[in-house]
């Protein structure tokens, strides 16, 4: 494999990784702070993508579409928290799974009702369409570079928010001991709504940014949700740093596995069975990675006490 191809594949893995990070960050915050398993996180990703497609169809502007997606996902997130999720904090995880699974069905059918079951498409903005030349003669899609940049910026922003601001202190305190910070006079209900809306907005942003690359369709959130759960389990539940490292690990493992495994099997098998076996095994690599990490670190890379 040439160096140019390897660098291109690393960029692909990085881009996939930061997308997963946007999803996993919200999921891990919500789980860490509120102890809530939110299966409907994938629906918020879908809502972001549909909101972006709707706004783009209406105004023709990608940037407005991105803003619209952020706001729609945050608003629906806050609404869902106040109407449904709030009643689930004291229940056990099974009730939460059941209720948020019901939300998936409601959001999927609702979206189908308004937008139909055929996929929608978003166009990349002119500024970001086409490839660009990177140093070393590597041609790479501008839009994918944009996703990487946004993902890294959001990651840095979240670190700053969690570690340097008053809200961040409250979030971390809420993670450690929810009764105590309520006793100290923090409005815990408002804090929970805020965290949920923040997580929803990140998922919506991820959905909106993936729109121009893939198609916008009902059910697009669930495959990503599964990967996001893998990411937070690898990274350690509740840890933003863990979500970031976990997302990049999963992104790179998946991308490089898809490319390298068939070639690896090609060394000792005939070409056609090597490609089928390699392709089949490639779809398992991230789960093997997860199992391997859990073997040595049962609470994930950056997980606290289990």
């Amino acid at each position: 494999m040439s160096a140019a191809l390897l660098i291109e594949q690393l960029l692909n893995g990085l881009q996939f990784g930061v997308m997963l990070f946007l999803m996993a960050a919200g999921l891990t915050l919500i789980f860490g702070v509120m102890g809530l398993i939110n299966l409907a996180h994938g629906s918020l990703y879908m809502i972001g993508a549909f909101a972006a497609a709707g706004v783009a169809g209406w105004t023709g502007s990608f940037w407005l579409a991105l803003m619209g997606a952020l706001m729609a996902a945050a608003m629906i997130g806050a609404l869902v928290e106040m109407v449904v999720i709030r009643r689930l904090y004291d229940r056990d995880h099974l009730d939460q799974v059941l209720a948020t699974f019901a939300l998936i069905l409601i959001f999927s059918e609702g979206t189908r009702f308004f937008f139909g079951s055929l996929p929608l498409y978003l166009d990349t903005p002119d500024l970001l369409s086409g490839p660009t030349m990177l140093p070393g003669g590597i041609e790479y899609s501008k839009y994918r570079l944009f996703i990487i940049a946004v993902g890294l910026a959001v990651g840095a922003g979240l670190f700053w928010l969690i570690s340097r601001t008053r809200i961040g202190i409250q979030i971390r305190a809420g993670e450690a001991d929810r009764e105590m910070i309520a006793a100290l006079g923090v409005d815990i209900r408002k804090l929970y709504t805020l965290v949920f809306a923040l997580g929803a907005a990140l998922a919506g942003l991820a959905g909106a940014m993936i729109g121009p690359i893939q198609s916008v369709e009902v059910g697009m959130g669930e495959p990503v949700l599964i990967l996001a759960f893998v990411v937070i389990v690898i990274g350690g539940i509740g840890s933003i740093k863990g979500a970031f490292i976990g997302a990049l690990l999963v992104g790179l493992t998946d991308t490089l596995g898809r490319i390298m495994l068939p070639q690896l099997f090609g060394l000792f098998m005939d070409a056609s069975s090597a490609t089928t076996v390699g392709a089949s095994l490639a779809s398992m690599t991230i789960y093997i990675l997860m199992a391997g990490i859990l073997l040595f670190k049962p609470s994930g890379l950056f997980g606290g006490q289990s």
Binding site: S2, A4, L5, E8, Q9, N12, G13, Q15, F16, E139, S141, R144, I213, Q214, S215, M220, P223, T255, R258, I259, P262, A271, S272, T275, T276, G278, A279, S283
Partner: peptide, 21 residues
């Protein structure tokens, strides 16, 4: 090269890089 992707795959960045090279 002969490449198999996953059924329902939506992102082909890795395969397109392979094609380019």
């Amino acid at each position: 090269e002969e490449v198999y992707t996953q059924l329902g795959q939506t992102d082909y960045a890795a395969e397109i890089s392979q094609i380019r090279n």
